[in-house]
């Protein structure tokens, strides 16, 4: 099988695809990791938030004809608000029990699928026209501009997030809360505000990822299914609550998925991903970058 990779162009193509995949995984997974870091909110409906982001672009760009960048930006506040509502109605009352919140958001996933399906149709795949046609030529590898776009957006988004967490007062408070909620409370940080903020950012990042992917991913009410599995693999590999770990694991999984898909097939790639997740959970539950808690 390996002889196909000897082809240099194919190798570059695969690496480029890996980077694109890793970037999109990172944008999806940081939100999941952030919500889990603050008060252990495990959001099963994260994939449906991604789906919601794609539908925002479908509505504003494909149906109403707004410019594509504006439509993408619309997804951020809309899906972010969904995250905040989820925190208020589901995660807050089930705060003492991680599993309960996780299972309840599985119920939320059902609800969102039905609502979107009823509003815009279940069976038909919604197609969103590609705003940026043509392909970039990188050292002989051809990648559609729409895919290339994902990489700078991911970098900008992660940089903004980093700036927020380390330089802005609210972001610092959020980190303090993730590390030690009890001490944070003593310092006068409102835990409820922080969990809402975390879920808001979490939803916004999922929405942004979905919005970016809308033109190149089949848009259906059930598109969250595949996403949630990938997102959880990434977050588990990164250590559940570590944002840096999630980014690293996202890039790693992007490479693993893309290379295994190229060498073998997509199902095998999924199997490798799932196996990685199981092995890490069992052998090193704190993840690649996670710290062992005393």
């Amino acid at each position: 099988m390996g002889h196909r990779l000897v082809d240099l162009a194919l190798l570059i193509q695969t690496i480029a695809n890996s980077i694109v995949a890793g970037s999109i995984y990172a944008v999806i997974a940081v939100g999941l990791a952030m919500a889990f870091g603050v008060m252990k909110m495990a959001n099963f409906a994260h994939g449906e938030f991604f789906m919601a982001g794609a539908y925002v672009v479908y509505v504003f760009y494909a149906l109403l004809g707004w410019p594509f960048p504006i439509a993408v930006l619309m997804a951020v506040p809309i899906v972010g608000a969904m995250g905040i509502i989820t925190e208020r109605l589901i995660f807050r009352p089930t705060r003492s029990n991680v599993l309960a919140g996780f299972m309840a958001t599985a119920g939320l996933a059902f609800i969102l699928q039905v609502l979107v399906g009823q509003a815009w149709g279940v069976g038909l795949m919604r197609s969103v026209p590609t705003p940026y046609m043509g392909a970039a030529d990188i050292l002989g590898a051809k990648i559609g501009w729409q895919r290339v776009l994902v990489v700078p957006v991911a970098i900008v988004m992660l940089s903004c997030l980093w700036y927020f967490l380390f330089k802005v007062k609210y972001g610092k408070a959020l980190r303090a809360c993730a590390q030690d909620p009890d001490t944070a409370r003593l310092q006068g940080i409102g835990i409820n505000k922080m969990t809402m903020l975390a879920m808001g950012i979490s939803g916004a990042s999922a929405g942004l990822a979905g919005a970016l992917m809308a033109p190149i991913h089949p848009v259906t009410p059930y598109m969250g299914h595949g996403v949630i599995l990938t997102a959880f693999i990434v977050v588990v590999m990164g250590g559940m609550e570590s944002i840096a770990g999630a980014v690293l694991a996202a890039v790693l999984l992007g490479f693993i998925h893309t290379f295994v898909t190229t060498l073998s097939d997509a199902v095998t790639a999924q199997m490798v991903g799932v196996a990685c997740m199981a092995i890490i959970l069992i052998v090193r539950p704190e993840g690649l970058l996670g710290r062992v808690k005393a």
Binding site: L89, I90, P93, T94, A100, G101, M103, A104, A106, G107, L108, A109, F110, I111, Q113, V114, L115
Partner: peptide, 14 residues
């Protein structure tokens, strides 16, 4: 129907 079931699940857990 899934909406009804999802809602029931959330109701019971909360």
């Amino acid at each position: 129907r899934p909406l009804l079931f999802g809602g029931t699940l959330i109701f019971f857990l909360v």
